[in-house]
Simulated assay, not measured.
Amino acid sequence: MTDNPSASSEEAAQNAALQKAVIVGLQPDQSQHVLDEAVKYARLLGVPLVVVHVDVTRFVTYEDPDGYVHSAPIDINFEAGAAEFEAVQATASAVLDGTGITWTARQLVGDPALAIKQLANKLDAQLIVVGTRKRGIGESIREFFTGSVAARLAHRQHRSVLVVPLEEPVPDTQKDIWVE
């Protein structure tokens, strides 16, 4: 994000055109199934699709009254978030270009659940689509400290949240779900 006053007025105009959209949260190299499900619901509802990536390496420093968000990096390596956003945009473009779906990509900053919730409020979104996390001990530890984005979204706002499984389901006979 830049400190450009015209950027906030452009975003406001774009937000007006995206009212009632379906929002899908994506990460680089995430299963295309998440995006496919979001496209399906955007088509069913006849609304635009907003593909979002949340840069967790940056945090919101303050927000102007007109909604423009100023952010700062947590880490000196702030190029990582830009590269991830470019990867998400490329994936979305490869899937969505030529489909007739009106879509845009946005990069948000900070806590994923709060950032997506705030955008959903601005757009009066009809649905939020997110994927489940990968199985594994590392992801379990991360979720223990940060919490599930899907669960936090479901408990902190009034919109429906579609949680799309990323992997094959764990068989009922398997005791431990998070085995690596």
Rank of each mutant, 00 (worst) to 15 (best):
S148W: 00
I76G: 10
G110W: 05
K117I: 05
I116R: 00
K40P: 03
E86A: 15
F78W: 15
S140F: 09
D66N: 11
E143T: 09
V95D: 06
V95Q: 09
N121H: 11
K134W: 05
T61P: 04
G81P: 12
F59K: 04
D36P: 06
V109E: 09
I141H: 04
G147A: 01
I137H: 04
G81I: 11
L35S: 11
R43W: 04
S140N: 07
A150F: 00
S93P: 05
Q118F: 05
L35C: 12
T57Y: 02
V60F: 02
G67K: 04
N77W: 13
D97P: 06
I116M: 00
H33K: 14
A90Y: 10
V95T: 06
D66L: 06
A150C: 01
N77S: 14
G67Q: 08
T61F: 04
E63Y: 04
Q126K: 10
A42T: 03
S93T: 14
S71R: 13
H53W: 01
D55T: 03
A92D: 09
L35V: 13
D29T: 14
G81Q: 12
L127G: 08
T132K: 03
Q30K: 11
A42N: 03
S71W: 10
P73F: 11
A125N: 11
T146K: 00
G131T: 05
D29Y: 15
V130P: 09
R43K: 10
V69T: 15
D75R: 12
D66W: 04
F85I: 08
T61S: 11
P73L: 12
R133T: 04
Q89H: 12
A42L: 02
L35E: 12
R142T: 08
D29E: 15
I137Q: 04
G100D: 03
Q118M: 07
